[in-house]
């Protein structure tokens, strides 16, 4: 792997060799032959016995067990599947908020996306990349080759913060092209209506997609900090607001906490994973939690 990609550093690659995406991310279509799906199916790999319940397919009843025990059990098998991951990276203007060391929130998200792509490709599974703001700006289809990985990394490197965020619109636009169920990994600051986001996610949930939401926020956004009296400019809309940070800090924290709590509650209600990706923490911490 040449060390010329901005978002995949050689030292990161060395660390990534110790990771393997496994149980937590198991869904149909994910890393075929190496991982098992929870979907019961007709493969040759026995999974378990379970008691019969009305509606079960009588074909699955193990009559030998019935003959020995006089009880009806079903014999289930693991279904071996192909695995696919779809990376959605928010590239709106708000993601261009600068951090220390000359990087931005978008870069932080891109580092994580690059790592995920590398892991998937290393495991000969498929990954797609979608860069969006209020529309899909770049969309790379599924692929599992090294060339495809390079294309993804190049796309991330060339990506610039754009306009307003509209994850809902991006998800709606992508729905027709994502045929098989897989895993959605969405990296965004989610500066839009949570209800609209989950309305757009519902079709994916119904189709059995495993969804991971990573909310990328800086400490400044979480805490406001001691900025003092300042004229705040919205990076997406250009609106201005003069305010004294210390005087609104407590209220601001409470507002952020409520917004995060809303998002987390909605996600939990739909069995969607939500995780806060603080930019002052290493993205490897996210990987650690994801692979545990």
């Amino acid at each position: 792997m040449p060390a010329t990609f901005k978002h995949l550093k050689p030292e990161d690659v060395r660390k990534l060799k110790n990771y393997e995406l496994s149980a937590r991310l198991m869904v149909e279509g994910w890393l075929s032959g190496r991982h098992r799906s929870r979907q019961r199916g007709s493969s040759i790999e026995f999974h378990e016995y379970r008691g019969y319940t009305p509606g079960d397919d009588p074909k699955l009843v193990d009559w030998r067990v019935f003959a020995r025990t006089d009880r009806v059990f079903l014999k289930t098998f693991e279904q071996e599947t192909n695995m696919e991951m779809h990376l959605f990276v928010d590239s709106s203007a708000s993601m261009g908020f600068p951090l220390a060391d000359g990087v931005s929130k978008l870069d932080h998200a891109s580092f994580f996306a690059a790592c995920m792509a590398w892991l998937v490709v290393r495991q000969t599974d498929k990954v797609s990349l979608h860069l969006f703001d209020d529309r899909i700006r770049t969309s790379l289809p599924l692929g599992s080759t090294r060339t495809h990985l390079h294309q993804c990394l190049n796309a991330l490197e060339n990506n610039k913060p754009g306009n307003k965020t509209s994850l809902a619109a991006a998800l709606e636009r992508s729905l027709p092209v994502l045929n098989r169920r897989g895993t959605l990994v969405i990296l965004s600051d989610f500066y839009e209506d949570p209800a609209a986001i989950f309305k757009a996610l519902n079709p994916y949930i119904h189709r059995g997609f495993r969804i991971h939401l990573f909310q990328v926020l800086t400490p400044m956004e979480l805490d406001l900090g001691e900025i003092g009296l300042a004229r705040f400019t919205d990076l997406e809309t250009g609106e201005k607001l003069t305010i004294h940070s210390q005087q609104v800090r407590e209220s601001y924290r409470e507002a952020v906490r409520q917004r995060i709590q809303t998002l987390r509650t909605l996600a939990a209600g739909r069995r969607v994973d939500w995780m806060l990706a603080r930019t002052d923490e290493s993205y490897f911490a996210l990987l650690d939690r994801l692979t545990q």
């Binding site: 708000s94 705040f232 609104v248 209220s251 507002a255």
Partner: peptide, 19 residues
Amino acid sequence: PREFPFPSLQWLRQVERKT
């Protein structure tokens, strides 16, 4: 006051009136 670019004023607007 000095200019300070911020990702979004969404949440600041919520608390502005109180302070």
